[in-house]
Design a protein around this nucleic acid. Sequence first.
DNA 1: ATCGGCTCGCGCAA
DNA 2: TGCGCGAAGCCGAT
Length: 472
Amino acid sequence: MVKASRIKIYNEHAAVGDGPVVYWMNRECRAHDNWALIHAQAEAHARKVPLIVVYNLVSGFLGGGLRQWDFKVRGLKVVSEELEKHNIPFFLVHDKSGARSVDMLTDFFTTHNASLVVTDFSPVRSMREWTEKVIKQAEMSVHVVDTHNIIPVWVASDKREFGAYTIRPKIYKLIAEYLEPFPNLHSQKEHYQIKSSIDWDALLSAKEIDQSITVCDWIEPGEQAAKKALHDFLAQRIDQYATLRNDPTERAQSNLSPYLHYGQIAPARVALAAWEASGATNITELMHEHKNAAKDNPNSFAAFLEELIVRRELADNFCYYAPEYDTSDCFPDWAQKSHQAHAKDEREYTYTKHQFEHAQTHDALWNAAQYEMVRTGKMHGYMRMYWAKKILEWTPSAEAAMKIAIYLNDKYELDGRDPNGYAGIAWSIGGVHDRAWFERPVFGQIRYMNANGCKAKFDVDAYIAANTPKLF
DNA sequence: ATCGGCTCGCGCAA
DNA sequence: TGCGCGAAGCCGAT
């Protein structure tokens, strides 16, 4: 049974017909380990009506191109195959204009005579706005299920958290209760009369998608591939996570963020697998090891769970309670005041959006990070901080820096358009979840980073050589 | 290599 | 009201 606190119920007293329960899949593109789908199936079973699934596909969603489209659509094809094995029909509505999604969805619910709509939760503004409009227009009840956060965002905290240290104790208190095993998806006995037919090849070659953002060939989309990547990480690389994860010349990170972003794997599935691999009996004690472990003997499992759970769920908390998450309005007061005080500081270098996008700065390290993102669709996590902070340093204002960083992140990163990205950029440029540091030009009290710090931490020349295209 | 100072504000103890 | 401490650091002194 799905915990009631994972679900928000709207239009509670709407009439109940005998049409199907519709799971409107949104953020969570997977058939397994999905509380929204599990809840929709339980509701359909209780009402003795069929369950069907619909996904709203939007061309060029939030500035993405072929890279993101290909990963998402191929992942959805896997979802449709998995659902078909369980006799659950999967439909697509395709909004090529980007403006008709809500109408197309409400038309779909009417056509199919839906008796209940279940959807999954996202704090990303466009998805929240769709959900709000659907709730307003729909004649049936709508259930919104948070199946991304292990502890639903509205349960973990009722306010915007100030930093990791304020949300951490709240998560520690609830994690043992909320990190629970998923029940299996059941095969559906009801036969649904309307057939779905999707031309996947036509979708994959849709002409309106920006072809200049190339497909990533180093990562395979879909929920089976996600589980394989998880188990490879746990079997081969997690031991080095605590010591090497911030070295961009190593491959010590999990590389799971594209799967997590598209919902092709559940954060709770990753946490359960990491917990099991650690051999620990108690998840709360294991997470405490993040702080308790001796400095010269850090616990890689605890370090990984800290990032997977505490920092990721903090990013959802940030976007949920600060809907202006992609502008400088979301910065804390001390950071906004500091930026104002330094607005007229002379910038040693300034670059345009075009120059940043084409890696045309004077700094080979910054350019290498930009190349890594444009070529592979995934800049190393440590470099993302340096990259964003230099955009602040080399633009006329924090507002301009936010716009450029988010534009590039959402256009090129496979895991772009995600709360993690918005929180990370706001941390780098606006001091969100961070503290004030000593004054310096341009940055004011925002934490400063420079190439000397990188030189002390990793082999900068090797990173530049590995990521800069060779011209001759 | 290592350490303290830089600096703001939340949350809790008192 | 005071105090401890924090998402990834920098810098200069030792």
